[in-house]
């Protein structure tokens, strides 16, 4: 039930290698430490949001409002900085705001029993209006550098952001595979009614998954402020669909019950490598969405075929001589 689809991760890993090789041959500027750092930095928000979405999807939910949650959390952090709060507090504020909004989403879904896709489409509109109203037409730009110093620096010679992402994924792995919550979440995603019969608190488990997703989106909001020192009205408008595409690409089932954290990570890295590499070899940025779509459709339909082929081969060998 909770086995990870190792095949997908292998496919993604190979795809990343192949893409890197191709770009390295095509552009002398691709395979440099500086560019690797740039790709990593551009992936941070999506890595955190994708991680949260992996939990939400594992429990059989979906969240198309997650980009707006990141936006609201970023505004909270930005206002914190402008009021002169220390960076640590601004960071806490962002995570707290994200968690609260995630709870709200979770309540509509888990308690109100509105299907997640419907509830989050509705909340997308509501949160978006909240962003408009809160910003009131003024961009927050050239923000104080407190969060930048905290999150864009290095610790023990390693980028803080890298440490945060690795730590978050490690904790998430423990949470998903080694705790009752993780087992319950996958059970709820797999079959809600059976899980309930087994005594799982379905409502609570769902709620926590959405809260977790919100909290990680909040953390992503803090990183957004740290990296760009700027919050504008359109913040997060494309984030949710990109993240959902990457998580699905990574092998997490959209029906719930199956999750791959490593897959999510690799899916997002592949997306960012392609986006970066295409600009470096001179492809107009307008083609990037086309590539994302082809990648998503290609990997998922190819996999279906390969798996089918594998089954057929296996059956062939199993046939008695």
């Amino acid at each position: 039930m909770s086995t990870e689809p190792i095949g997908r991760e292998l496919v993604l890993g190979l795809a990343i290698l192949a893409a890197c090789l191709a770009f390295a041959l095509a552009s002398p500027f691709f395979a440099t430490p500086a560019n690797a750092l740039i790709i990593g930095r551009n992936a941070i928000e999506l890595l955190l949001i994708g991680l949260g979405l992996t939990f939400v999807l594992a429990g059989g939910g979906i969240d198309v409002a997650v980009g707006m949650v990141m936006g609201l959390a970023a505004i909270a952090a930005a206002h914190g900085l402008l009021m002169g709060l220390p960076a640590g507090l601004a960071l806490t504020l962002a995570v707290l705001a994200g968690t609260l909004l995630g709870c709200l989403t979770g309540m509509v879904v888990a308690i109100g029993r509105v299907p997640a896709i419907v509830a989050t489409i509705g909340l997308y509109g509501v949160y978006r209006t909240a962003i408009f109203v809160w910003l009131g037409g003024q961009w927050l730009s050239g923000l104080p550098s407190g969060l930048t110093d905290l999150l864009s620096g290095t610790l023990l010679g390693l980028p803080v952001a890298l440490l945060v992402v690795v730590l978050a994924y490690a904790l998430a792995h423990v949470l998903l595979r080694r705790t009752p919550f993780g087992i319950h979440l996958l059970a709820v995603g797999h079959d809600e009614d059976k899980a309930r019969l087994m005594g799982v608190n379905v409502v609570g488990t769902r709620l926590v998954a959405f809260a977790l997703g919100g909290g990680l989106a909040g953390l992503a909001g803090a990183f957004h402020v740290a990296t760009y020192r700027n919050v504008e009205m359109t913040i997060g408008s494309n984030t949710a669909l990109d993240a959902i595409a990457a998580v699905i690409l990574g092998g997490t089932s959209i029906l719930g019950g199956r999750a791959s954290l490593l897959g999510t990570m690799l899916g997002i890295i592949l997306l960012r490598v392609l986006q970066n590499g295409l600009v470096l070899v001179g492809v107009p940025s307008l083609w990037q969405t086309v590539v994302t779509g082809l990648l998503l459709l290609g990997v998922l339909s190819l996999e279906g075929h390969l798996l089918g082929l594998g089954d057929r081969l296996r059956n062939f060998w199993r046939q008695p001589a």
Binding site: E45, H224, Y228, N230, E232, T234, I235, S237, N238, V279, P284, S285, L286
Partner: peptide
Amino acid sequence: QFAGGTAER
């Protein structure tokens, strides 16, 4: 190059 509406892109 076109970034759409976001400062991030």
